Amino acid sequence: NNEKTDKMHNSHIVINNAGELVAVYRKLHLFDVETSEFRFQESKVISSGNNLVSPLTDTPLQGGLGLLICYDLRFPEASTILRKNGATYLTYPSAFAYATGLAHWESLLRARAIENQCYVFAATQIGYHNEKRRSFGHGMIVDPWGKILAECDKDDASVPQCITASISLDLLNDTRKRMPCFSHRRDEVYTLAPHCMIPADKSVCTKDSEFLTVENEKSPYFIFEKNPIPKSTTFLETPSSIAFTNISCVVTGHILVATRRCVSRLKDLTPEEIVDFFMAVCKCQRMLEEYYKTTSCTVTVQDGEFAGQTVRHVHCHVMPRKEGDFKHNDEIYIELNKHDHPKDGERRSFRSVEERTAEANEYRKILAKSKFF
Rank of each mutant, 00 (worst) to 15 (best):
H313F: 12
K207W: 12
F222I: 00
F121Y: 13
T357L: 03
T238S: 14
A87P: 03
N51K: 07
G86T: 07
L52I: 01
D187A: 08
A368E: 15
C316Q: 09
A18Q: 15
F211Y: 15
Q161C: 07
T270R: 05
E3C: 10
P320M: 12
T300W: 06
I198T: 13
E77V: 01
L171W: 03
V281N: 05
F326Y: 12
D344H: 05
T270N: 05
K202Q: 14
R356D: 08
C262P: 01
A258W: 02
R83H: 00
V318S: 09
A368C: 02
D276F: 05
V214P: 00
R112E: 07
T270F: 07
S203H: 06
Y119C: 06
S11A: 15
T164A: 12
A122M: 03
N329K: 10
D340V: 07
F373E: 00
E37M: 05
V257S: 01
A150Y: 02
A99S: 13
K343D: 10
L102N: 14
V353W: 04
P93M: 07
F211C: 12
L52N: 02
N51T: 06
I274W: 05
C297Q: 05
N130V: 06
F182T: 02
A113M: 04
S36L: 09
I46Q: 02
Q117F: 04
F136R: 08
L82F: 04
F96L: 11
V53C: 02
N130Y: 12
S168W: 02
L269M: 15
F121A: 10
G101W: 08
Q161I: 07
E188P: 00
F326L: 05
K7V: 11
I163Q: 01
D32H: 08
S240L: 08
K177T: 15
E289G: 07
V214Y: 08
